[in-house]
Design a protein around this nucleic acid. Structure first.
Length: 421
RNA sequence: GUGGGUGUGGCGAAGCGGUUAACGCACCGGAUUGUGGCUCCGGCACUCGUGGGUUCAAAUCCCAUCACUCACCCCA
C-alpha cells in the first residue's frame, strides 16, 4: 500500500509553485506600497491563544482545530487563522511602544479540520494584513482598498464588497437582546439550525437560507439601527473614504463574521463564480482582541484572503498567469569528451543567470534537440567529436534553425550577447 | 458531523455480463549511421480503487471498504 497525502491537503508541483510565486510577489510589492511589513509567527501556538482570541463559541474553536499535547504536556494547536498570533506577537514584543499604527502582513498555511470541498481545505494558505494601535477609520478603508487593488491587479472582475458594522460590545449586547425579544414568540417556527443560532449567535439567523426564517426575520431589529454614536460615526467615515477612493461597496446589514473578535467594521469580498465558498477574503476591526489575549486596551483592524480561492477565481475567469521559459541555452554534446568540454561553459553561463541545460543519459543528437525544443531554448550549442578536434562548436538558432560554426573560446561571449540582447 | 456523485495506463476517456480492455494526448524508439518543431511506422494496462459475493463466465451485477469530489454547516 502506498501512502497518500492527508485529506484536504495539496502537493504543489513545479507548475503550481511558479504561479504561487507570481501571486506572492504581487502581494509583497503591494503590501510594501501600502506601508505594511512582513511578520512571521509560528505555525503552532498555545491552544489558549485561540480559545481566547478566536472565541470559544466559534465553530473554528469548537470543531475545527488541530489540537494536540506536546511532550511537555502543553496543549498546542496548529493555527487556524493568522490574526490571533499576530496580535500575540504585537503584545509579546511590546510593539505598542513603537509609532502607531503598526502595520504588518503575513502569509502562510492555516489548518482547520473540516470536510473538504471546492475552495476549502484542511491545510490552506492565507495572506493577511493587520494594523494595530489606531482607531482611525482610514485604516479600515485602507485595508478594503488593498484587497480590491490586489484583485484588480490580477484582472479579476465581478467582485462585490459587502460591508457592515457589527458595533462595539455595548451595541451588540443591546441588539442581541432586542433581536431575541423579537424572535422569542416565533422561536418554534424557525428551522432547527436557527433555533440553536438563537442562543449562540442570533445575528446569523439573518443569512439563513430557509425561506420561512427569511420571512420571519425581515422586520427584526437590525444591528445598524442599534449602533451607538461612536460606532455610527466610525461607520460613516469608513463609507466616506471608500466612496472618495472610488471603491464600490454595498451595505449588508446581515453580514456577520464567524470569529468572535470583530467589532465595528466587518466586510467580505465575494465572487460568485468560484463555487459555494464564495468569500474570497474577509476582515474587519477587532478593538477588543489585544486586551482579550492579555495586552493593553488597544485597537486593531485587518483582513485575510485565501490563496487557494484566488487561484479558483483566476481559473473561473480564465485568467492565465504569465510563465517564464525554463531554458535559454541547451548544450548538446555527443560523447563524453564533448560533454566534458561543455560542462565548464554550463557552469559559467549558469553563474551569470543564464538558464542552461545539458544532456543527461548520453541521448542521441536528435533526442537532445527535441528536448531543447520542448524546453523552448532559444539557442543550442552542438559539439561532437569533429567539432572538438577543430576546437569549435555549432551554434544553432532554435527559432529558425540557422547554424554557424563558432570557436570554442568564443561560445561564452556569443551566448551571453545573444541571450542578453 | 450529514447528504449526493465518481473511481479503467502518466493524463483525458470508451466499454456496462461472454474470445487477446477501444481511442486521443503525453512519453520512448525508428523512417533521417550527427540535427528539433510537420508527417508516417512501431512500442507502452498479466488488468479495470481495495476486499468479498453471485455466475459456466464480471471492468461490467450485489455487498462492504477506502479514496476523490460536490453540497449542507461554517469559513479564506
Amino acid at each position: 500500500m502506498s501512502i497518500s497525502r492527508p485529506k484536504g491537503t495539496n502537493d504543489f508541483l513545479p507548475e503550481d509553485t511558479a504561479k504561487w510565486q507570481y501571486i506572492e510577489n504581487i502581494l509583497r510589492d503591494l503590501a510594501a506600497s501600502y506601508g505594511y511589513e512582513e511578520i512571521r509567527t509560528p505555525i503552532f501556538e498555545a491552544t489558549e491563544l485561540f480559545l481566547r482570541g478566536v472565541g470559544d463559541t466559534t465553530d473554528i474553536v469548537n470543531k475545527e482545530m488541530y489540537t494536540f499535547e506536546d511532550k511537555g504536556k502543553r496543549s498546542i494547536t496548529l493555527r487556524p487563522e493568522g490574526t490571533a498570533a499576530t496580535a500575540r506577537a504585537y503584545i509579546e514584543h511590546k510593539m505598542h511602544g513603537l509609532a502607531q499604527p503598526v502595520k504588518l502582513w503575513y502569509i502562510g498555511p492555516m489548518f482547520r479540520y473540516e470536510r473538504p470541498q471546492k475552495g476549502r481545505f484542511r491545510q490552506f494558505h492565507q495572506f493577511g494584513l493587520e494594523a494595530f494601535g489606531s482607531q482611525d477609520p482610514a485604516l479600515d478603508s485602507e485595508i478594503i482598498s488593498f484587497a480590491m487593488a490586489f484583485y484588480q491587479k490580477l484582472g479579476l472582475t465581478g467582485l462585490s464588497v459587502r460591508l457592515n458594522s457589527v458595533g462595539c460590545a455595548h451595541c451588540r449586547e443591546e441588539h442581541k437582546e432586542k433581536l431575541q425579544e423579537f424572535l422569542r414568540p416565533v422561536l418554534n417556527d424557525l428551522c432547527s439550525d436557527c433555533q440553536t443560532r438563537f442562543e449562540k449567535n442570533p445575528l446569523r439567523i439573518f443569512d439563513c437560507k430557509n425561506e420561512k426564517c427569511n420571512e420571519l426575520i425581515v422586520k427584526a431589529p437590525r444591528i445598524l439601527d442599534c449602533l451607538c454614536d461612536d460606532c455610527k460615526d466610525h461607520f460613516e467615515k469608513v463609507k466616506t473614504l471608500l466612496t472618495a477612493g472610488n471603491i464600490p461597496y454595498h451595505i449588508d446589514p446581515c453580514l456577520v463574521r464567524g470569529l468572535d473578535y470583530y467589532t465595528k467594521t466587518a466586510f467580505e469580498i465575494l465572487l460568485e463564480d468560484i463555487g459555494a465558498q464564495s468569500a474570497i477574503c474577509g476582515g474587519g476591526r477587532y478593538d477588543g482582541l489585544i486586551k482579550d489575549i492579555g495586552g493593553n486596551d488597544n485597537f486593531g483592524v485587518g483582513f485575510a484572503l485565501g490563496l487557494e480561492r484566488v487561484f479558483g477565481a483566476l481559473a473561473a475567469q480564465n485568467i492565465e498567469i504569465p510563465t517564464v521559459p525554463k531554458c535559454d541555452v541547451f548544450l548538446v554534446s555527443m560523447g563524453d569528451k564533448a560533454k566534458t568540454a561543455l560542462f565548464p561553459i554550463a557552469v559559467s553561463l549558469r553563474g551569470m543567470g543564464i538558464k542552461t541545460e545539458i544532456d543527461f543519459g548520453g541521448k542521441s543528437l536528435k533526442s537532445q534537440l527535441k528536448t531543447a525544443d520542448r524546453l523552448k531554448a532559444k539557442i543550442a550549442i552542438i559539439m561532437g567529436e569533429d567539432e572538438l578536434l577543430r576546437g569549435e562548436a555549432i551554434l544553432r538558432d532554435m527559432a529558425d534553425g540557422e547554424q554557424s560554426p563558432i570557436k570554442a573560446a568564443d561560445i561564452l561571449d556569443e551566448v551571453i550577447r545573444r541571450i542578453k540582447q
